[in-house]
């Protein structure tokens, strides 16, 4: 049974089970029966843009297969709309894979990014924050995921400490709330929400765009590497131990650049390079351009050619 053909499911055909959680805009339910590998997000607000949701559902199908696999392994992507009569009530998405779950005393808890931003507490159960190299792996994967999304002109919008999950081994990231993603120039499914401390001071009045995402990616990468919940560009990053000097220097430089005006912030590709294992080769400045000496020049023919005219006699008259 494939969910990637973009067709809608009818609410009446689903066996909706227990509620798994509830947010401001929707509630997530378990499913029983043939769709048990998926969960159903039900919208609790009436103003859902069904066309925008249909476009998101079609995104993976329009990608080359290697990119589609990368996307679906790293994002709870909306795979099919759920409709009731003419009304869009929600959508199906994959369950969050097991490596992204931790265990607290009272039960399972998602390994949200926020656990990498604070000192650990006993209440966190088996969710143990990563060391420097582990954090670097998470930052790399997050930057690569943004690069993939941005290359398809997809704006995440609400980047925050709660909607990116991480797994310790193997290191991996998983993006939640993907129905808040929109393509540049298109309307979102719902107004894109914001999270305190994760706001872009230069966000346009029309809502988040790629440039906003770039700013928030700078926050994400640097806050994870500094274990800080509220560090902002312009402030001096203080990194956790165990990071390569080159990475620290590059991240600090890119982070400072994220304070620049819109359009001049480092993009996802620059973040991928800053965090990359392979490093960069510093190239020395090029020598100054040599100008040839100004010598007298030989004439290259003088002006338009004056051709003589051959006068022809009129033909003989007989």
């Amino acid at each position: 049974m494939s969910l990637l053909d973009g067709s809608d499911l009818r609410l009446g055909d689903l066996e909706v089970g227990d509620s798994l959680g509830r947010g401001g805009q929707g509630a997530v339910h378990e499913l029983r029966g043939p769709w048990a590998d998926y969960v159903y997000k039900e919208y609790l607000v009436p103003t859902v843009n069904g066309d925008a949701l249909a476009r998101l559902v079609r995104v993976p199908g329009g990608m080359p297969s290697h990119e589609r696999d990368l996307l679906l392994a790293q994002a709870a992507w909306p795979l099919a709309r759920v409709v009731d009569g003419g009304r869009v009530t929600g959508f199906l998405m994959p369950r969050v894979p097991a490596p992204f779950w931790g265990r607290r005393a009272k039960g399972p808890a998602l390994r949200e990014l926020q656990y990498l931003l604070y000192d650990p507490k006993p209440l966190w159960g088996d969710i143990t924050p990563l060391d420097g190299p582990g954090r670097l792996e998470i930052a790399r994967r997050a930057a690569s995921l943004f690069l993939l999304l941005h290359s398809h002109r997809l704006v995440v919008g609400d980047v925050s400490m709660r909607n990116l999950l991480w797994s310790p081994s193997p290191p991996a990231v998983y993006l939640l709330d993907c129905d808040a993603i929109r393509r540049v120039g298109e309307r979102p499914v719902l107004p894109q929400p914001q999270t305190p401390d994760w706001t872009d001071p230069q966000q346009p009045s029309t809502g988040p765009d790629l440039d906003t995402d770039r700013y928030k990616l700078a926050l994400l990468v640097t806050r994870v590497l500094c274990k800080s919940p509220d560090l902002r560009p312009g402030e001096e990053p203080v990194f956790v131990p165990g990071l390569p000097e080159r990475v620290k220097a590059e991240v600090a430089a890119r982070f400072a650049e994220a304070a620049r005006p819109r359009g001049l912030r480092p993009d996802a590709a620059q973040w991928v390079r800053a965090l990359d294992e392979r490093g960069t080769i510093e190239l020395p400045p090029l020598p100054p351009v040599r100008t040839p000496p100004d010598l007298p020049k030989a004439p290259l023919g003088g002006g338009p050619i004056r051709r003589p005219t051959i006068r022809l006699r009129p033909p003989d008259r007989r």
Partner: peptide
């Protein structure tokens, strides 16, 4: 206690 205290950002704010 668990739900609020175990949520780092919420506990912090």
């Amino acid at each position: 206690h668990q739900e609020i205290g175990g949520n780092p950002v919420v506990a912090d704010k």
